[in-house]
């Protein structure tokens, strides 16, 4: 079958790309998308290793939970973004700097 490393490399690429999106995008929604990408990469990783766990199915179960949590996170995050926009009148993370020194 597909060797483990292939999955890991793909997962690494997705993770790096998601990281790039989180760090550099000027729109909060894009940052959210980046986070989702990273979560997806990690789920892929879990599933890839889960192939070797027939007794406990730990990898796949964890992956399922991760998916659920990612969904919850998106929902809450969008609500937060809405509120942030109401207050700051902007979704640019760079403008939300009231906690700066």
């Amino acid at each position: 079958m597909i060797p483990l490393t292939h999955f890991l490399i793909v997962s690494a690429c997705l993770f790096a790309i998601g990281l790039y999106a989180v760090l550099s995008r000027r729109n909060a929604i894009m940052v959210l998308v980046g986070i989702e990408l990273m979560i997806n990469a990690s789920i892929l990783n879990l599933v890839a290793f889960g192939r070797y766990d027939k007794t406990l199915y730990g990898g796949q179960v964890f992956a399922l939970f991760a998916i659920v949590l990612a969904a919850a996170a998106v929902a809450v995050a969008l609500a937060i973004i809405l509120n942030v926009y109401k207050f700051y009148k902007s979704v640019n993370p760079e403008d939300i700097n009231h906690l700066k020194d």
Partner: peptide
């Protein structure tokens, strides 16, 4: 699709 290749069809 990649998940399927990892034999995690339900996921």
């Amino acid at each position: 699709g990649l998940y399927v290749f990892a034999l995690a069809d339900f996921v």
